[in-house]
């Protein structure tokens, strides 16, 4: 499967989209205009790292080592997940700029 984004792209949540822990219900929620989404545990781990600083590469590395899973599979899952959110306008991606490589 071809990836939608370059591994060096840096994703961030669009303005008006926020991830937070919902203490009252004991779960993570993704808040968007007139929407409350319940991301599953895998999605939460990805979303916590979507901070406008980490590139997709860095996110995939972190997840692969944190959960000791196959890196290629993580890369495919992250790409598909971000593509879905980008289509809804909830995630924006920018190409890497000089200086990002160090992070």
């Amino acid at each position: 499967m071809t990836a939608t984004f370059a591994a060096t792209d840096v994703p961030k949540l669009a303005r008006g989209v926020r991830l937070r822990h919902d203490d009252a219900r004991g779960q993570w929620v993704l808040l968007a205009p007139e929407r409350v989404l319940n991301p599953d545990p895998v999605a939460v781990e990805i979303l916590k790292r979507v901070d406008g600083a980490r590139s997709i590469d860095v996110i995939v590395d972190e997840l692969a080592s944190a959960f000791t899973v196959d890196r290629d599979r993580v890369a495919t899952d992250v790409d598909a997940f971000l593509a879905g959110l980008a289509e809804k306008g909830m995630v924006e991606l920018r190409p890497a700029v000089i200086g990002d490589a160090a992070s």
Partner: peptide, 9 residues
């Protein structure tokens, strides 16, 4: 109080 009650939006 709303936030504490569990209101999100």
């Amino acid at each position: 109080e709303a936030a504490k009650l569990g209101v999100l939006q």
